[in-house]
Amino acid sequence: MANKSVIIKIKRQNNPTSNSYWEEFELAWHPGMNVISSLMEIAANPVTRDGKATTPITYDSNCLEEVCGSCAMLINGRARMACSALIDNLEQPVKLEPFSKFPIVRDLATDRSVIFENLKIVKAWVPIDGTYDLGPGPRVSPEEQEQAYPISRCISCTCCMEACPQFNEDTGFVGAATIAQVRLFNTHPTGKELQRERLSALMGDGGIQECGYAQNCVEVCPKDIPLTKAISEVGGAVMKQAIGDLFRR
């Protein structure tokens, strides 16, 4: 194991409009390395494999335990979280690229704020009356909790959107994560109040009809969120509401 090294190839770009280029780094191997710890090592010694001085890599991170959703990038071509990507489990050279479907900020950092905008469009919240002391919330059975909790663990990382063949500028598709949140709030006893509005927001262009059920989303989701199940349930509800609206007209 001694003297083993790790080769990392990084696709860099200095700003949103400049051209991209690749740089290669070589680090001494040690146990437990992950992609973020490697990027930290590069920052402390920003020299490329061929000895050229360069700048530290710009990337997003915060929790370093796969719960904040910051550090999403393409690692050997796959959309995943960098903090939980152990170097020992990756084929070398390790290839790091920014997400391809979001505007690049710099290097590996991309602007993924669209997911937060989408959450606004579908009103992903429980419409409470106010924060005054109004007593306990509605009773919820353990079974209902066990349905809701897994979806509520979505970390808004956008891996599912990067991997989705339907998610691009042309379709304007909201993506799997947002649809799953609709499923979450539409089944909450108080969240239900906004059910119709949420489903309406998912009708038409960019809505749930764009989904081709390719299931790429489920495969990359780091939190194993039951995305296809949520999509088909919400899809059914949207359909039902659309037909209902048709007759009501």
Partner: peptide, 22 residues
Amino acid sequence: PGIIDLLDRMGVPFNRTPEGLL
């Protein structure tokens, strides 16, 4: 206790007892 109630109303999926209480 009031803060827990508020969070509960906001939809936090707290673990539940069989009766549906926190």
